[in-house]
Amino acid sequence: MVVVLVEHSQGVFKKKSLEAVQYAAHVAQQMGTGVTAVAVGKVGDEAMQALGQYGAQKVLHTTDARLDDFNSRAYTKVVTAAAQKESAKVIVGLHDTTGRAVLPRVAARMQAGMVAGAVSYPDLSNGFVIKKNVFSGKAFAFVNISSDVKVIGLMPNSFPVVTGEGSATVEKLEVALTDADFSVQVKEVNKATGEIPLSEAELVVSGGRGMKGPENWYVLEALAKELGAATACSRPVADSHWRPHNEHVGQTGGTIRPNLYIAVGISGAIQHLAGVNGSKTIVVINKDPEAPFFKAADYGVLGEAMDIIPKLTEAVKKFKASQN
């Protein structure tokens, strides 16, 4: 069996988790076996059954009031229990803040080799070989897992999600959890509501020092709104407190791989590129024709940010109207 940990936000499964289920289903097919999803906390049967549309045959569901807050120890026990129940040879999760706390723990607990940040299906022709980003996007490595049980942390947005047919059966999974598993208290949660989380965004509009100051960000926000994009920034922008730190991308900030990355007034330093060079399409807007970012771009526009962005927003608006 292949077991996949799915994440939901208030009962709605995240798109990246649907991607993970679909990925797990593909791996299971390669191995001639099936997929069981593991869901934790308050989520309805209907939503769990619908995971069948992405290839899950079964969903194991663990509820416990204490599980409403994330906790890496408790989650690890749940995933391990599910893997043992299903005699899973492969455990899939996401390479995100949840997966990066749980999957390594599961791997250590089960003495399973792990690939963190997988971007391909395993190649089973000679071992169990998976491709991942290394050197902050400057290269890929093909990693072979040699242990009996294998753990894969899938890089979100690596495969397009396709909704199919099917319905999964839901079963309760009882896991013996102790107070020690919940010894981390969650005091406060601050989530930007209504906005698209940067790590999951398919479209991203990003600004650098060339934007000159926080007072000019409204043009980028207007473009992002028109596109339905998230906003990001370069490190000096976050360091100068023009934008919040969670928007900072690059070597020392977030790593993103959206379908479209629009970089405005960003020079394209290697440390910035490290966080965004997995983007499928890159548009660079800069007034300096020598800006290194143009070398990494698919489309470039030379000129003043404050002139170009409103024009681009206008063009997007017209395009959207013409599509309706």
């Binding site: 990693v143 242990s147 548009v283 990494a296 698919d298 030379l302 002139d307 024009k311």
Partner: peptide
């Protein structure tokens, strides 16, 4: 429990397509 078998460099970009600042419709 794992080992790197080989490496690969990412595909090089085709080269940037420049678009006039006055033609955002084209972009």
């Amino acid at each position: 429990l794992s080992n790197i078998v080989s490496y690969e460099m990412p595909p090089t970009k085709q080269g940037v397509k420049m678009i006039s600042a006055d033609n955002m419709e084209e972009l």
